[in-house]
Design a protein around this nucleic acid. Sequence first.
DNA 1: CTGAAAGCGCTTACAG
DNA 2: CTGAAAGCGCTTACAG
Lengths: 359, 359
Amino acid sequence: MSGTATAGTTIYDVARAAGVSIKTVSRVINGAKNVRPATAESVQNAIEALEYRPNAAARNLKAGLTDTIGVVVDRLQDPFFAEIVSVAESRAVAVGMDVLVAATGTDTHRARAQLSRLVNRGVAGLLITPFGVDDPVWQGIPRDRPVVLMDRRSGVEGVDLVCVDDEGASRTAIEHLISYGHQRIAFLGEPAKYSTVHNRLAGYLAALDAAGLSPDPALISRTCANADDALAVLTPMLDARRAPTAVFASTPLIAPGVVRLLMRSGRRDIALVVFGDFPMADLTTPPTTVIDQCPSSLAHAAMDRLLARVSDNDIVASDIVLPTRLIPRGSGELAPPRAARVRGRAQPRTGTRESSGTK
Amino acid sequence: MSGTATAGTTIYDVARAAGVSIKTVSRVINGAKNVRPATAESVQNAIEALEYRPNAAARNLKAGLTDTIGVVVDRLQDPFFAEIVSVAESRAVAVGMDVLVAATGTDTHRARAQLSRLVNRGVAGLLITPFGVDDPVWQGIPRDRPVVLMDRRSGVEGVDLVCVDDEGASRTAIEHLISYGHQRIAFLGEPAKYSTVHNRLAGYLAALDAAGLSPDPALISRTCANADDALAVLTPMLDARRAPTAVFASTPLIAPGVVRLLMRSGRRDIALVVFGDFPMADLTTPPTTVIDQCPSSLAHAAMDRLLARVSDNDIVASDIVLPTRLIPRGSGELAPPRAARVRGRAQPRTGTRESSGTK
DNA sequence: CTGAAAGCGCTTACAG
DNA sequence: CTGAAAGCGCTTACAG
């Protein structure tokens, strides 16, 4: 009647218009091979003339699954997750599927409820960014349909995981700082809730160790859940006698806190590398050096896998590890003041990569 | 069996377990009044014992609608829209509904396809941020179910609209700049595709007019669709003989381009006000003054309306206009250099609000 | 307050 | 290559 897609048209209307049975219409809709071309064409014409769109619910009722995938993330406002949802949506729409979003707020109960709601809705597949190390909720991940986990390890076995090499990338970042002469590097991370932070700390320690530097517990914080926490933790750290000359923010969530502190206190001499690119990172003073984990690539890889499984779920589960890249923008390439270098406990090895940039 | 929500349990299983008919179970699920408390309780127990979750598809098939709302936005990565989707999700989940997301990319064809897909999926309501002035696609907005439009006017009548006073807020921003002595203020906006930009320009012109200043076409650009465009447009503008002393970026999308240019060129003397807050706006040098349009409040107001309509769609459609606020952070409070002030064609009126801040 | 019947719009075996 | 029947799991009138 209006421009709205015709609502009341059913498969019966099409069958009548085309002079065939509803089964034949069904075959045409589903692209069955065994339909006479002429028949298929007249059915197709009827479908278009009547603007027929198969009822998703009825379809679902028989199949048990909808042409819908569920995407479960921490927070939809977080640029990292927003990018993932965006890619999931465009990829899904491209193959005629819809995306149902669910935010957990990293709350176990909410995650459980969201998961069961999505399953109940008959999603054909799930893209999940789990939180928590061995959080029991992920043991409840449905096994009867395609699932792809992203970004973080959850302790669940036998399910695809698409992620980056957190340890290796962090190690690279720290080696980068060391190559510029830094020996006192602060590590700021979130609470132990995430495997990623654990691995990033491991990379940090490995880089120090490889350079013959011993870690200073006073420079390591794993209590920064957000920007404010980072600001609170870093403030006394910078005022301490053995202050860091560089900061490694192991997640972009806390980056604003660090940048804010450095800007406000006028400490433009503190080097900074952030794990994860963030909007406006190039507009800070100096521009912020980051490890780009390429959320878009992660999401595409995850959707490749998920859509492949929607077609055929008999694939062996595997871990897909994607590369990251260090983007030097300035803040991570600041050399420490001479005094700090002299005070250092050990000399960093020479010849580290990126060392050509060392003063 | 596992932690997964029980999949195969139907209303029949519950009815058998509780020793009642499926109709009674249905009544309990739907909270019908006329069920004997004792019966209701035993049914409830059976539901819990069996972890029964009604099949959404079957329910939908009868009702014609699912407990799902569709959210249609330009881009899911845009912080403004991400916030809207996030609020929609949390509000929906709170009342047991799900959210289906759809990005249009401000493409008419895609928008049409998305709309019809959502309708076909049986969404119980739609939250839409339309684009384009009088784009025909919005005439196709379904009228048979609740719809709430957000942020931009689409030329569609008889549908709720939740937005801010773009003209008034822009006028305030320009008056703010004028109160600091600015007379040459650049206006950067997107192409005519959006009612919001049109209204923001109107506010800009109104403020100039009220101050007895005549607009300079050379300072007005409506071709900035993104940050790069803004950079390209503003660069020659700043080099021109009659360069602006202040810039009004009428959308946060182009803000990074402006900030980037001002930072790179070292023009920290150019005042800047952006319509719409953006991440890290407080970390630029100087911190960026913005008009906060409070996307979260907008989304909540829209969801209030949409959920009210899902309960009862017999409400008269209306426009809901929410307040904005100017957040002075520094960049908008820079006074123009004396030379520029002297060159000005007219003196701004004195006594404008905020004028106490004028040097 | 409770139940037996019909049917929502499809698809899945089963026949022809 | 095509069709008549059954049924997916619910809810909506209609009886009692």
